[in-house]
Simulated assay, not measured.
Amino acid sequence: MASRFSYLRMNPFDFHKHLINNYILTQKGATKLLQRDTSRDKRDADVIRENHKFLWDDDEEPRTWEERLAKKYYDKLFKEFCITDLSRYKENMFAMRWQTEQELVVGKGQFICGSKHCAKDEGLRTWEVNFAYKEQGEKKNALVKLRLCDKCSTKLNHRHKKKEIKRLSKPNATASHSSSSTHSCDRTPTSTINESSDDTNESRKTPEPEESDIWRKPVEVEEPSREDEFEKYLEHLLL
């Protein structure tokens, strides 16, 4: 009876602990029953890995919080150059991903070789690759740019030659300056000859009176005589 009254005086939490300690944990290894099942736990990295897309459409809106988290991570990436993994190049299989902020700051993928396990910064070449990948059971393609050293470029083109992007060579400034100076030198004697020929032609021409000189002189008008005026008067009367 005493034990019964002691149970009644316990609050629900103390009574729960009493039952667990006296009836469940008395067997060996029974403490494993109190451990939480962590098999379905996921970190943020796991959620991003499951819902990540290599390319998101501009008008595509995420529907779940997992997709929103993956889209937020995608927006923080820099999509000018790719980082590639060439460890399985003999199988013609390459892994691609975009640059992170830290890689952009140090120049990885643009001024340093874009291979994941290479750090060379000399003799880099730019390649345009048609990256074919499978995402969520769907086959997709994307044109990406890679900056690789000579050794990594050989691995990239192990089976198929990729398209190399080369810069257009700029014209030499000294050559253009010298050509312009020669043109100017060639033009100067012709101009002097033309001027001298114009002077000789002007000297040979006879001076002609200008039209403005006509208006400067008074106009000379002959006054009619009285007889002429009288004859005109009679003609008007006889008409």
Rank of each mutant, 00 (worst) to 15 (best):
R125P: 04
K139L: 00
T126I: 11
L33H: 10
K42V: 05
D228W: 12
A173R: 14
R43C: 07
L8S: 08
D186I: 11
E103K: 00
E61Y: 03
P224H: 03
C149K: 00
E135T: 04
R36I: 03
C185T: 10
R159Q: 12
E66K: 13
I20C: 10
L239Y: 11
E231A: 11
S184F: 01
K116C: 04
L239A: 11
D198K: 15
Y73G: 01
P224L: 07
F5M: 08
V129P: 01
T100E: 12
T64K: 00
N194Y: 11
R9Y: 02
A70D: 12
E101S: 13
S179K: 12
V47P: 01
Y74E: 03
L55N: 04
L69E: 01
W98V: 08
S176N: 15
R49V: 03
N201S: 14
K76A: 08
S169K: 14
E227D: 04
E210F: 07
K108T: 12
E66W: 03
Y73D: 01
L77N: 04
W98R: 09
S3Y: 10
L55H: 02
N21I: 05
T31Q: 09
D186G: 13
C82M: 15
T64L: 04
R49E: 02
L143F: 12
P218W: 10
T31C: 07
K140D: 05
K116F: 13
R204N: 08
Y233S: 08
T190H: 09
M10S: 04
K140R: 11
T31P: 01
L148Y: 01
K90N: 09
W215G: 12
K232L: 10
T126Y: 00
F13T: 09
